[in-house]
Design a protein around this nucleic acid. Structure first.
Lengths: 156, 156
DNA sequence: GAATTCACAGATAATGATTATCAATAAATA
DNA sequence: TATTTATTGATAATCATTATCTGTGAATTC
């Protein structure tokens, strides 16, 4: 018996394809592809390390001296709106973003250095064991939340 | 085949028992049971609605006019330190706390009104369906994170 | 092609939850 | 009872993120 999260059955795309997908989605929603946005998209499309907004900015400001944190945040929010980025919320550290796999999926999070990586996808029972084996992490805790609308809010 | 999260196999306790457990744990760690702390513990031990720090404060200030938000936050952090409270981190809204079941477990979170409730515990495959049936929520997303130490951080 | 919207960038200020600081006070100990 | 120590609660500080606003450049219209 193999349990698979339905929304994880997505194909993984190359950075080039992902970039193109994001651009198409923006165009479809009548947003402009500015040089600044293009730069942010490029970083997100190829990032494997779930960067924070600040980290994205740092990577860009070298090549684009005019880049500002505001623009990074605005682009992130734009992508959130059209569902092309996954946001991992934290309160004790900055939020982290996955532009590569913008759908819910498990994560391995180091509580010390903040490293976040995508473990291989397996059924849940074996997931913990396999994740330890394949990532070398020690697992001390996990977080599993389902998001949606409660009965009261569905009517509104 | 039934998949159960190991850390969910805990017994559920009455508010009175939970209060006593928290007090014992604090005593064991040589922290004082002050009237203010006792009041916060009492709210947390019986709360089923995953309150925020502010909400706890609001509930207490009526009976304890001298109560301050600082004290609530400090008590929460104390309980975090000794593992007697579960913190649900958010960046877009206040963190929420479970003093009743201070171990990782799934949650149903309404993205509109912020309601958080504990769904019945089932194996993962049937969890989504059963949760929809039993909670009346519509599920639009989920979050599954494993926390631990990455190989680099284990040595340090 | 010129005029005129309009979206956007980026600087700056504002927000808000949480933490840090510190003086006053209460509790524990000697 | 004196003295040390922890705790409270008011206040200020922090910091990621958002809001605001002005200048600018692109797109559209005439």
């Amino acid at each position: 018996m193999s349990i698979v999260f339905p929304d994880m059955k997505k194909t993984e795309f190359s950075p080039e394809i992902r970039l193109e997908q994001m651009i198409e989605k923006l165009k479809k929603n009548e947003f402009r592809i500015t040089p600044q946005r293009y730069a942010v998209l490029k970083v997100l499309a190829r990032s494997e390390n779930h960067p924070s907004a600040e980290r994205i900015y740092e990577q860009l400001v070298a090549d684009y001296p005019t880049m500002s944190p505001s623009t990074v945040y605005k682009t992130i929010n734009l992508l959130k709106k059209i569902g092309e980025i996954l946001e991992l919320e934290f309160s004790e550290m900055s939020n982290r973003y996955d532009g590569n796999r913008p759908y819910p999926h498990p994560h391995m999070i180091c509580t010390k250095c903040g490293t976040i990586l995508d473990p291989p996808l397996l059924d849940f029972e074996k997931l913990k064991i396999k994740m330890i084996e394949e990532t070398g992490f020690t697992i001390t805790s996990h977080r599993l939340d389902f998001f949606g609308l409660c009965p009261d809010c569905q009517g509104k």
